[in-house]
C-alpha cells in the first residue's frame, strides 16, 4: 500500500475516534455543539495529527505553530484532538462543562494545555491570529498560524476588519480555514444573512483563496502546502463541509447545532461511528 494511503487511513481512524468523543462528551455534559464539531473534525485532525509543528509534551515550545479556534463552540472536537495528541489525559474529556473543569463550554486560555486563546464570542479569532502572525514576523520566526472560523460568524464585521489588516501587512504565515457547512442556528447561512459569493469577497480583500472538500484529507494537506508556498498574502481555505458529518441523522440537520443527542440517538450515532467513514 502506498504511504499516502496508510497516512489517510491513520487520519480516518483518528477522525472516527474524535467523532465518538464528541458524541460522548456532549451527551455526558447534556449540552454543547455536536453539529459543528463533527463538520470541523477532519480539518482539526489533519492540522494536529499531520500538518502542524507542535509538541504536546511542551505546550509552550516557542517555535510551535499556533491554532486559534474562532468558532469556540466546537470546543468538544478541539478538546478531543488535544487529548488524543497527548496534551492531557483522555479521561478528562468526561468533565466537559462540569463545575471546576478545565474543559470549559468554550475554550479558556491558561487553564488547559494546548489552548492558545479564549474564544466563544464569535468573530474574534482572525484578529487574534493576526496578532500572533505579526509577532512571528517581528521575531523572524518561521512558525505558522492557523485559525478555524465558522461560516456563520463571518457575518460579523470584525472578520473583515481583520481580513484587511492581514492583507495590508502581507501575513503569509497565516492560514484561515472556513468550516463552510452552510448552517447556523436559525438555518441556512444564505437565508439568515447570505455570505455568497464568499470566495470573491476574500479575493477582493487581497487573500489567496483555496476552495476544497473539507472532509478530504489529501485536499486539506495540499491546501496547507499551497498556502506555505504563497508569498506576501494570507491564505483562506474555504472548506466545504457537512454539518453533523459522520452521523446520518445529524448530517445537514440544524437541530444539532447547539443540542446533543438523546440516549437512543446516542446509541445510533455511536453505532454508525463504529467503522470508518
Amino acid at each position: 500500500m502506498p504511504n499516502e494511503e496508510v497516512e489517510f487511513d491513520f487520519l480516518k481512524e483518528r477522525a472516527r475516534i474524535i467523532r465518538r468523543h464528541v458524541i460522548d462528551m456532549t451527551c455526558a455534559a447534556g449540552s454543547g455543539h455536536p453539529g459543528g464539531s463533527l463538520s470541523a473534525t477532519d480539518i482539526l485532525c489533519t492540522l494536529y495529527f499531520k500538518v502542524m509543528k507542535h509538541d504536546p509534551k511542551a505546550p509552550q515550545w516557542k517555535q510551535r505553530d499556533r491554532f486559534v479556534l474562532s468558532k469556540g463552540h466546537v470546543a468538544p472536537a478541539l478538546y478531543a484532538v488535544l487529548a488524543e495528541s497527548g496534551y492531557f489525559p483522555v479521561k478528562e474529556l468526561d468533565t466537559l462543562r462540569e463545575l471546576g473543569s478545565r474543559l470549559q463550554g468554550h475554550p479558556s486560555y491558561g487553564k488547559l494545555p494546548g489552548i492558545e486563546m479564549s474564544t466563544g464570542s464569535l468573530g474574534q479569532g482572525i484578529s487574534i491570529a493576526n496578532g500572533m502572525a505579526l509577532a512571528a514576523k517581528l521575531d523572524s520566526a518561521d512558525n505558522r498560524i492557523y485559525c478555524l472560523c465558522g461560516d456563520g460568524e463571518l457575518q460579523s464585521g470584525q472578520n473583515w476588519e481583520a481580513a484587511m489588516l492581514a492583507a495590508h501587512y502581507d501575513l503569509d504565515n497565516l492560514v484561515v480555514f472556513v468550516d463552510r457547512n452552510r448552517l447556523q442556528t436559525m438555518g441556512d447561512t444564505e437565508d439568515v444573512l447570505s455570505l455568497e459569493p464568499l470566495a470573491d469577497k476574500w479575493s477582493a480583500f487581497g487573500w489567496n483563496v483555496i476552495e476544497i472538500d473539507g472532509h478530504d484529507f489529501a485536499a486539506i494537506i495540499k491546501a496547507c502546502e499551497d498556502a506555505k508556498r504563497c508569498r506576501g498574502r494570507p491564505t483562506v481555505v474555504i472548506a466545504n463541509t457537512v454539518k453533523g458529518r459522520g452521523v446520518s441523522f445529524m448530517e445537514n440537520n440544524p437541530d444539532f447545532h447547539g443540542k446533543c443527542c438523546n440516549p437512543e440517538q446516542k446509541e445510533k450515532a455511536m453505532c454508525e461511528l463504529e467503522e470508518c467513514l
Binding site: R66, V68, Y109, E116, M117, Q124, I126, S127, I128, A129, N130, G131, M132, A133, L134, A135, A136, L138, D139, Q158, A162, L165
Partner: peptide, 11 residues
C-alpha cells in the same frame, strides 16, 4: 483582538 494575539505571543 490583534493586541491580544501579540500579547499572547509574548509582546
Amino acid at each position: 483582538g490583534t493586541a491580544a494575539g501579540l500579547a499572547v505571543s509574548g509582546k
